Simulated scan of single mutants.
Amino acid sequence: MNLLRKLLFPFAILYGIITSIRNFLFDKGVLKSTSFDIPVIAVGNLSVGGTGKTPQIEYLIRLLSDKYQVATLSRGYKRQSEGFVLADETSNAVILGDEPFQFFQKFKNIQVAVDANRTNGIQKLLSQPKKPQIILLDDAFQHRKVKAGFYILLTSYGDLYADDWMLPTGNLRESRSGAKRANIVIVTKCSSDLKESDQQNIRRKLKLEPSQELYFTYIDYDDCIYSQTGKLAIEEIKKERKLLLAGIAKPTPFFEFLKSNDDECLTFPDHHHFTETDITTIANKAKKHKIITTEKDYVRLKGTNIAPQLFYLPIKSTFINYQNNFDTTILNYVGKSTGNS
């Protein structure tokens, strides 16, 4: 923790008091939460920064969309549009935001919508001719104006909410006690061989309620990179010189997975909107070599003049153990739920 953050500790206390009062008022019904008569699953975190929400939402889509009509609802961070937008063939990352557009590109059998007002967004989705049976709320753990029927809380291994502090001293959006709202807590970005003893140590540190379930996942990288025209095996391009590009919160693991000695890494801010100047810089650094980026960045870059050189590396969230238990819990909630009130 740097000196400036330590000096801001009094503001962290004040911020914690404000968010705790807000949560208390929602808990007591003084502030209104709206519930809906279909299953609503909220995925989020207590901290700012990347905890792996996008691959977790995609895991749920794969689990549920073969049996149910699924819709995702996000706020559409940094999109250049306002209000409720339902994705269609005219949509792009500028209109939807990069992550919702990624969902829309990958999963053709679901509905993808964005709205900063989640209550309005759900109401709009339910008024569509093709009414969803399940709604997945992306990054909505603190959006308490909607009362979801099921909450999944993510926290990164090595950056657990139990070890963090309130903003601006730390990265917590609300007090650690907010974790009690979660039905399931998932520790993300673990090593794939995390020992059972280490899992138990984390369980003790998080101090979960007996009714809460705890799982551990890791980021699983694809064996291939993909472009508009095809794919290449990772092993084929490992020794080849290339430009690695990422505009995500924590790009180091992405770079480490792909990097060889002669590769150059280029980093942009999370959810960055690439300008013409950025594209020129990227092209100059890459020269005629391949450019490999994240899937989230790819949806913003594939329409630019570097597209012929551009590839992306897909990722997915994989459970270290007890995946069947997780799937059963989710499917039981969806199957038995006739409403969230």
Rank of each mutant, 00 (worst) to 15 (best):
R176T: 13
N183H: 14
E196M: 09
K195Y: 13
Q200F: 12
I186L: 07
Q199G: 10
A182Y: 11
C190F: 04
T188W: 02
R176E: 12
K180W: 00
R181E: 01
R173C: 03
K195I: 10
S175H: 14
C190E: 06
K189C: 03
K189I: 03
I202C: 05
E174V: 04
E174K: 04
N201T: 11
V187N: 06
K180D: 02
S177H: 13
I202Y: 01
N201K: 15
K180S: 07
V187M: 00
R176M: 12
A179D: 05
S191G: 03
K189D: 01
D193M: 13
S192G: 15
S177P: 06
A179E: 04
G178L: 05
V187T: 09
R176P: 04
D198G: 02
R173W: 04
T188G: 02
D198C: 00
K180M: 03
R173T: 05
V187W: 03
S191H: 14
S175E: 09
D198I: 00
C190T: 04
D193A: 15
I202S: 01
E196I: 07
K189N: 00
S197D: 13
A179K: 10
S175R: 11
K195A: 15
I184W: 11
S175K: 12
C190A: 00
S197L: 03
I202A: 01
L194R: 09
Q200H: 11
A182Q: 08
S175D: 14
V185E: 06
C190P: 04
K195F: 13
E196K: 08
Q199T: 05
Q199K: 06
Q200Y: 11
I202N: 02
N201A: 15
V185G: 09
Q199D: 04
A182C: 07
G178K: 09
S192D: 15
E174P: 09
V185H: 06
Q200R: 05
Q199A: 06
R176K: 15
L194D: 14
E174Y: 07
N201V: 02
E196H: 12
E196Y: 08
Q199F: 04
V185N: 00
R181K: 05
Q200I: 07
E196V: 10
A179P: 05
V187L: 04
E196A: 08
A182P: 09
I202L: 09
K180Q: 08
Q200E: 11
G178Y: 02
D193C: 08
R173G: 04
S177G: 02
I202F: 11
C190H: 00
S191M: 12
V187R: 03
D198H: 08
Q199R: 03
